[in-house]
Amino acid sequence: MDKKLNSAIVAFTEKFSEEKLLELLRKSIGDDPSDTLTIIADKGLHHIPKELCIGETYVFSSGQINVETDSTTQRFLVERMRELAKVLKEKNWTKVRIIVSGHALLSMQIKLLVYRILHIDSEDIAYFGPDGYRTISVNFRKDVLLASDS
């Protein structure tokens, strides 16, 4: 490492702290966990490892959903999406991670709502059996829309 850079780092950490330096660096590169929201689609049946929950964690649903009729299912989804919309609007989230769990409808609605409100693509974390949890991150504009124009 360059001597000037090294001495600047040492001076900064002595005056403030290593934690403060790390916080500033993370914010500068867009890797600040305080701006990250992890949404658990359904917390009930499966154990969600703690290390997957980065930043603030929001549980969209917990346990069984009433799917007896279309209207009860729709009412449930609308109620939960209204609550999630409040969370999405309360802060300037730079990253949203969705832990896919429970009924597919839950994750579908969450992903759409995140995009409609924040205009960002989410990272999707799903369980792949023996491979465990994996993160899938598709940049729809770059990887799909612009790529299909060429």
Rank of each mutant, 00 (worst) to 15 (best):
E56R: 03
T73V: 09
L25K: 06
L24C: 04
E19N: 01
F76P: 00
L37V: 06
K27V: 08
G30V: 09
I48N: 00
T57D: 12
H47F: 15
V67P: 01
T38A: 04
S28K: 07
K20D: 04
Q64P: 08
S28C: 10
L24F: 06
S17K: 09
I54S: 10
I65F: 04
G55S: 01
I54W: 09
D31R: 15
E68N: 12
I48V: 11
F60M: 05
S71G: 05
T36G: 13
T38I: 05
A41L: 11
V59Q: 04
G30A: 14
I39E: 11
A41R: 01
D42C: 13
F76R: 15
T57K: 11
T72I: 13
S71C: 04
V67L: 12
K20Y: 02
S34L: 01
I39C: 04
S17M: 08
E23Y: 13
H47T: 15
D70E: 15
I48R: 04
D32H: 02
S34Q: 11
L22R: 05
S61W: 05
V59C: 08
P33D: 04
T36D: 04
A41D: 05
R75M: 02
G63K: 15
C53R: 08
T36H: 10
Y58H: 09
T73D: 00
D70I: 04
T73M: 01
K43T: 07
P33G: 03
R75Q: 06
E56I: 10
K43S: 15
T73S: 05
E51R: 10
C53Y: 06
I39L: 10
E51K: 10
V67G: 00
T72L: 01
E68D: 15
T72A: 02
E51M: 06
K50M: 09
H47L: 11
F76Q: 08
S28E: 06
Q74S: 14
N66G: 12
D42K: 15
I29H: 09
S61I: 08
K15N: 10
P49E: 02
R26D: 07
L24T: 02
G44D: 06
G55M: 06
T73W: 00
K27E: 13
G44H: 10
D32P: 03
S17V: 03
L52K: 12
Y58E: 01
F76W: 05
L24A: 12
S62Y: 07
I40Y: 00
G30S: 11
T73F: 00
F76A: 13
L21V: 00
K15P: 03
F16R: 08
E19K: 12
T36E: 06
K20N: 00
D32V: 05
T69F: 01
S62F: 14
P33W: 01
P33L: 02
I54T: 05
K27N: 07
G55L: 03
K15F: 13
L24Y: 07
L52G: 11
D32E: 04
F16C: 02
H46M: 10
F76K: 14
Y58F: 14
T38E: 12
L52Y: 07
S61T: 13
K27Q: 10
H47D: 09
S28G: 15
I40A: 09
D35I: 11
F76I: 08
K15E: 14
L25P: 03
E19D: 02
L45C: 05
D70G: 10
E56P: 04
L22F: 05
G30H: 15
R75T: 01
G44K: 14
I54P: 09
D32Q: 07
L25F: 13
R75P: 01
